[in-house]
Design a protein around this nucleic acid. Structure first.
Lengths: 192, 192
DNA sequence: CGATTCTTTGAAAACAGTCAATCTGTGTGG
DNA sequence: CCACACAGATTGACTGTTTTCAAAGAATCG
């Protein structure tokens, strides 16, 4: 289970054995069953989390009880609620497993310790955050400029690898449309 | 003009005179008239830019020629296209001035130099990027979960300070709705 | 004042949401 | 191994919201 993370690190940065061991020594392995929460609304998020297996989602529940999925995550993705982590305030988000999953957790102090002792790791983290910002910005652009059908086509093309693993109703939630509407859009596409 | 930036820095971090001078020495001051481009689609963005006066917008133009505003920026905000900067590829975005404006530019090499020589500055930059990510994430959530009216009310409440400086049609563009629709929404709100 | 830009309004069409019913595929217990 | 339950997806009829297009009304600037 840790292997997946080690391979990820090896692909991204060069570390000596001491550094690898330092990182491994503070990692916390956690298994999650399908539907199990990693973070529940109201709790304060304390970690940096990396998915080694499975599929997860981050979502908010509005006052009508409707779930709105903000992110999906699979193997080799980081997840969490940085807003809650940075401000140490109760999270408005939920994170749970769509499939049986495995994650590696680092407490924030340990994560900061790694960043300070391993500059390459720190740089990698900053690169990831910077790229996430780009991804989110592009998602904002899509959401204000594209039609529902265009957003759906973009989604299945961009995330072809895991789109098939996710129930259609969750994809609709991520796109900000109703499951019935997505069903009709798919129908219209298929008919052509 | 540089004063605005110096005051911004003083509010955020503590610097000695050498550090202040180092930063000032590589800053490039630029004035922009209303409607003047800072970045035009197709060009590669080379800077880190800070607004000291005025009001600007970042937007993309779709294949039908419609503008979609991704960000507004006023005094004490950073702007630019990090995607183009990081990948050194032609930008898909335009940045221009909504009012006569003044910006301070740092070339990327100089900016990196400051980051490496002044850790407090580097930390400040990472904090800003991290917070931008949160802001964008919340905007994605609003865009998939709120009605057009709710998005508008959120906008004018969140950005009360500069919402009044921006033409309504641009606010509509930012929200992803048509100007006529925003006009009707405002009408409906006023009537209550 | 006149020209330009921005906003509002109206009517019709396109699009998305709601609610309820049906269909499909999966998996579990008898 | 079958029948049934369940979750997910689809369909239909209806309602509500947003867009479109065209025209008229404000507001702003030189």
């Amino acid at each position: 289970m840790y292997d997946t993370f080690q391979e990820y690190l090896d692909r991204k940065i060069q570390l000596n054995n001491d550094e690898k061991e330092l990182i491994r020594s503070v990692s916390i392995l956690k298994k999650l069953r399908k539907k199990q929460y990693l973070l529940q609304e109201g709790d304060v998020w304390k970690y940096h989390a990396f998915i080694t297996r499975g599929c997860m989602r981050t979502y908010a529940v509005d006052d009508k009880g409707v779930e709105h999925i903000i992110y999906f995550g699979i193997e080799n993705w980081w997840i969490g609620d940085r807003e809650s982590l940075l401000s140490q305030t109760p999270s408005r988000l939920n994170i749970d497993a769509i499939e049986d999953s495995e994650v590696i957790l680092f407490t924030d102090p340990n994560f900061e310790m790694i960043c300070s002792k391993v500059p390459a790791f720190r740089d990698m983290v900053h690169t990831i955050i910077s790229k996430s910002l780009n991804v989110n910005q592009n998602r904002v652009l899509s959401s204000i400029s594209k039609t529902a059908e265009e957003k759906y086509l973009e989604f299945i093309q961009k995330y072809a690898d895991f789109a098939v693993r996710i129930p259609q109703a969750m994809i609709a939630s991520y796109l900000g449309i109703k499951p019935e509407t997505l069903s009709r859009i798919r129908n219209a596409i298929a008919r052509r």
